[in-house]
Design a protein around this nucleic acid. Sequence first.
DNA 1: AATCTATCCAACCGCTTTTAA
DNA 2: GTTAAAAGCGGTTGGATAGAT
Length: 322
Amino acid sequence: MAKQSCCHKKKLRRGLWSPEEDEKLMNHIAKYGHGCWSSVPKLAGLERCGKSCRLRWINYLRPDLKRGTFSQEEEDLIIHLHSLLGNKWSQIAAQLPGRTDNEVKNFWNSYIKKRLRERGIDPATHQPLAEPAAAPCRAVFGDVVDLIPPTTTPLQAPLAADSMPLDGVKLPLDWPVAGTAAPPPSSLSRSSCYHQLQGACFDMDALQQHCAAAAVPAAPVVPSASSSSTLTSMAEAEHCNASVAGADGLPWLELGPNAVADAGHVDSYAGALDELRWSEYFDAAFQAAASQQGALQAGQCVYSGKDDVAVHFDVHGLSNWC
DNA sequence: AATCTATCCAACCGCTTTTAA
DNA sequence: GTTAAAAGCGGTTGGATAGAT
């Protein structure tokens, strides 16, 4: 479908919005709602394309936006979510009430990337930068990474349990794990799970099938200011999973699905985030990794205690669980 | 004071997905 | 089932600004 961008149409203003334009748009939406965006500019008396109006509203004029600098908690959460989801800015932003995908993306590109590099962490992979490419251990799905801290710590010498920020948080039961002789125990703290994860291959497709096979009803959609909420879905999926197997759920979901889904409950998970200092986590993990650099053999995966086992943590389709 | 460079961020572009006729 | 429009999304660009020279 070869469509010419609406912005190429003649007579349409482009570039920065004037206060008058903002006011017109805000007044119009306050009175009538946005309805169909393509009709908004005409009805609001603006010489803009609908797309431009939509973007302006979503990224700047929306009343529920939180302006200003990102807090440490938000930064930590972005880093963590990026390690799980990659450049899924809208999904990441959906977990940050009052923040837009554009804002999160800009913050990532202008600030977090730089900080991670300064700490010797590749922002694309969340792995130590100095590492030589270890092809067999490369994450299977590009920039989607893992739940495992970037460390060279071998299986015999894992990070101290008390250094694991989510220690005590339960990982779900029956996570399909390929490449392990035995299934994980029915309930794992993050630290114990960390041991399990080393050398394990998580197969989310299998997980989906697992859910599907259990004939779990589709999770209800939780209304949210954002159009989609992966972690909300994941939260619901966690219920699904728990209902199937009696598990306690995904690590971050200890916060409770409402804490994630309900934009009004920022405090509830911001509070929980006090114990979830991911940047410090990465620092500590990387330092531990650096201190044990000598123990890492060439080509050995920094995430795996076994150099012949690829770490697969496939989160594609997470939003479609169950 | 003038110029250059780096950084930030709003906005645009083009592609994909969803929805409705 | 097909098609077109609308909406959503992520990458990129360009202007404004601050800091360095």
